[in-house]
Design a protein around this nucleic acid. Sequence first.
DNA 1: GAGTTTGAAACT
DNA 2: CAGTTTCAAACTC
Length: 296
Amino acid sequence: MTCFGDLLLSPRLTVPVRVLHVTDSTTVRAELLEVVEDVPKPMTALVGRFLPVPAKLNLITQQLDKGALSSVVNGSAFPLGSTLPGPPKITLAGYCDCFASGDFCNNCNCNNCCNNLQHEIERFKAIKACLGRNPEAFQPKIGTSQLGDVKPRHSKGCSCRRSGCLKNYCECYEAKIMCSSICKCIGCKNYEESPERKTLMSTPNYVQSGGLEGSHHLSPTKFPGLPKFSKDRRPSSCISWEVVEATCACLLAQGEEAEKEHCSKGLAEQMILEEFGRCLSQILHIEFKSKGLKME
DNA sequence: GAGTTTGAAACT
DNA sequence: CAGTTTCAAACTC
């Protein structure tokens, strides 16, 4: 059996794969055809929160859940923009914080939640549909518009009408950035010279209520590039933001080393995958240790 | 805590 | 693309 297709690891990460063979009734063996170069921030996809990755990682191939892979490996199964049978569940739409930020729901209060591994196929369909409507649906909304820009800005701009862009209803204000020319807001007071804005900034509660120093409390829906560690949604897993960043750094370092040594593309890919294997192994080790479990 | 307001996302 | 509906978060009382 040889089958080519794209494996949707997360809303922001599609990896071309070749299915080699079905190892047993529950797993398939697939080869990653392309090294992940543009690693998005939510590396959680790669470290096992989006797909069940077994403790023992084959360096070149991964064993993936059959349902998950077979459902997405064939691009024709869920073509971009395909319609969903019936209305999508709320937890599989942009209204849901977790879904919009590319994560699974975890300890949320949602009803009939489908944003979990039990509804993986439905979830992948929803992601495809979402990306069909808006290819940048899962991209962070705040960033620099072009290279060389110093100030971050909202990628789409806000459309506020009544808040004057000086309340947290406004995505720009919530991110503590100025509204820009791409905003479609009416009666905007969120600009550099705005006296109302200056008054607001001088109030003692400004930082506490979401100023730059409190930026980790930003809504993950609106700013999916940020980790959701605010309030009562601390992850139960050891895959913290620091772990994710460290993993990214390790992979990048390995890539740079391969480049420095003028390795072939194939060898560079293998080096990065091996590094990823080591990272994953360490993460799993910590995870198991924290739960008092033993690794096989 | 309940009700209202707000604006993004989804829908038509 | 524009108007409308739905939704969850922000806000007010």
